[in-house]
Design a protein around this nucleic acid. Sequence first.
DNA 1: CTTAAAAATGACCAAGTGGTCACAAAGACC
DNA 2: GGTCTTTGTGACCACTTGGTCATTTTTAAG
Lengths: 213, 213
Amino acid sequence: MEAKKTFFNLPEEKQKRVLETALEEFSENGYEGASINLIVSKLGIAKGSIYQYFTDKKSLFLYIFDYAVELIRKTLKQVKHETREEPTFERIRRSLLAGVDFIERHPFIYRGYLKMMFEREVPFRQELLQKIRLFSSEYLTSLLIEGREKGEVRKDVNLETMVFLLDAVMDRFLQAYAVPYLDSSLHIHGAKRLEIERRVDELVEAIRRGIGN
Amino acid sequence: MEAKKTFFNLPEEKQKRVLETALEEFSENGYEGASINLIVSKLGIAKGSIYQYFTDKKSLFLYIFDYAVELIRKTLKQVKHETREEPTFERIRRSLLAGVDFIERHPFIYRGYLKMMFEREVPFRQELLQKIRLFSSEYLTSLLIEGREKGEVRKDVNLETMVFLLDAVMDRFLQAYAVPYLDSSLHIHGAKRLEIERRVDELVEAIRRGIGN
DNA sequence: CTTAAAAATGACCAAGTGGTCACAAAGACC
DNA sequence: GGTCTTTGTGACCACTTGGTCATTTTTAAG
């Protein structure tokens, strides 16, 4: 329980406005950097008010985190279901594109995740990050295991190694898409959908076939 | 010119102590989060003193950044030279291990780099990051081009795509090594050298041969 | 309209921030 | 010794931070 009862008595519309505003502030400035003063000022409410919704900065942050995690969880589950009949590397391709769509729809969530990854003072950072990494890890693991059963994925390569490789490449791809200056070589930030799909195809193919002769 | 003349008049030993202390503070707390008050307190000097060495927080940061970049540049150059006769994937292997060694020798530099990657208020962040990414990118590109000439690297895969893939996997590997909670699946953080080498071998092999059948 | 409970308010607090500056101490040269 | 320049100092400044709380405003019930 992280929010006070008063918060839930608010009209849903206002609840959402509070959440989205705070999410934006946290994702742009990190936990420490986020300013309660700025949040209330943007919302046009008094400082005291927000402390009637949440006991303190930490609980506000945690509430928003849970809100975001739930969105991610749902999205992954859906993609997994939608592609359940597809070949493994097609599923990987689709997962990447789903990530792109997610960032498009919820830009502040993914950026917030990147922020907290390397911040020190985030409360429960370790636990929170593991929660997320576990999603991704479990998701890719199950994809690869099913792929092995179908004979589409190598059996002579360590499963952990493959998960690591996939996770690294996919995450970096999304980083490049979400944050302009991380996109030094691929030029996918702000690119058209068609161009992005082309890049995804190339990348997935490189992962599948390898880059050595 | 970022440091004042007074700084250079200091005994070298003290210069280094100042730099290392500030580097540690910046790398642990990021640019905004780093506290000048804490730095001078750790150094046991008066607040005013540090403003006689550097004009402000920004110039102190930039000076330290250059100091760090120079170290990285030298290391990369050396590895490139040392492995110039080796096969391409052996060079990649060695580069990864050199990264591990670098982190071991300069833990605050790599962590600082990760911090500033997602921080907003770092001065000239974009330019600084591109400086670093360019190193990595140019390094890998030249490795792969030479590898192609030797017939060890595929010619039917986009060069940019391969650089991206390598960069992503290598960087993530070092992240996992440097930051415990980013190492969710590979368990290389704090692992013995032998175990790390085994992981590197597996990973490089997966990149070379691909993971698909 | 009265009353009581719920919600909103903003002046205020202690603590921390980067940065300044008048002054003191130390060094260097004669 | 005296004089002049370079370093070192820390009280102080304006400003921001997260958080509090006595007080007012709004809402709901009878």
